Simulated assay, not measured.
Amino acid sequence: MKMLLYSFLLATLVLSACGTDTPQEENTAQGTEDEKEEAEVAAVPEVEVITDEEPLPVSEETTIQAKVTQDGAPVDDAEYVDFEIWNEKDGQDSSNTIESEHVGDGVYEIQYTFEKKGTYQMYAHTQVGDLHTMPKVTVQVGEMKEDKTTAESGHDHKEGHGDSEFMVHLMTEQTFTAGEDNELVTHINRMEQPFEEAKVRFEISSDQLEAHKYIETEETNPGEYTSTFSFPSAGTYTVNVHYEKPDKEIHGHKEVKIEVK
Rank of each mutant, 00 (worst) to 15 (best):
residue 173 E to F: 08
residue 226 T to D: 10
residue 196 E to M: 14
residue 174 Q to T: 06
residue 227 S to E: 04
residue 150 T to M: 08
residue 179 G to S: 04
residue 180 E to V: 08
residue 193 Q to L: 12
residue 206 S to A: 02
residue 201 R to A: 11
residue 178 A to C: 02
residue 166 F to H: 00
residue 149 T to M: 12
residue 222 P to V: 00
residue 173 E to I: 06
residue 204 I to K: 02
residue 223 G to L: 09
residue 146 E to V: 08
residue 162 G to E: 02
residue 189 N to H: 14
residue 182 N to K: 08
residue 187 H to V: 11
residue 182 N to W: 09
residue 175 T to N: 08
residue 153 S to K: 15
residue 177 T to V: 02
residue 177 T to P: 06
residue 150 T to V: 07
residue 157 H to G: 00
residue 177 T to K: 14
residue 224 E to Q: 14
residue 225 Y to M: 01
residue 208 Q to M: 02
residue 189 N to K: 13
residue 188 I to V: 01
residue 184 L to N: 03
residue 206 S to I: 04
residue 181 D to W: 10
residue 222 P to H: 09
residue 189 N to F: 14
residue 171 M to W: 10
residue 147 D to I: 01
residue 206 S to R: 03
residue 185 V to H: 08
residue 213 K to C: 02
residue 161 H to S: 00
residue 224 E to D: 11
residue 194 P to I: 13
residue 205 S to Q: 05
residue 199 K to W: 11
residue 164 S to R: 12
residue 217 T to H: 11
residue 175 T to S: 12
residue 199 K to H: 15
residue 226 T to Y: 10
residue 215 I to G: 08
residue 202 F to K: 05
residue 143 E to P: 13
residue 186 T to F: 05
residue 147 D to L: 01
residue 215 I to N: 05
residue 176 F to Q: 04
residue 173 E to N: 11
residue 171 M to S: 02
residue 138 T to N: 08
residue 162 G to P: 01
residue 147 D to W: 03
residue 142 G to Y: 13
residue 166 F to Y: 09
residue 170 L to A: 03
residue 192 E to C: 00
residue 197 E to R: 15
residue 192 E to V: 04
residue 167 M to G: 13
residue 163 D to F: 07
residue 184 L to I: 01
residue 214 Y to V: 00
residue 187 H to N: 07
residue 159 E to F: 09
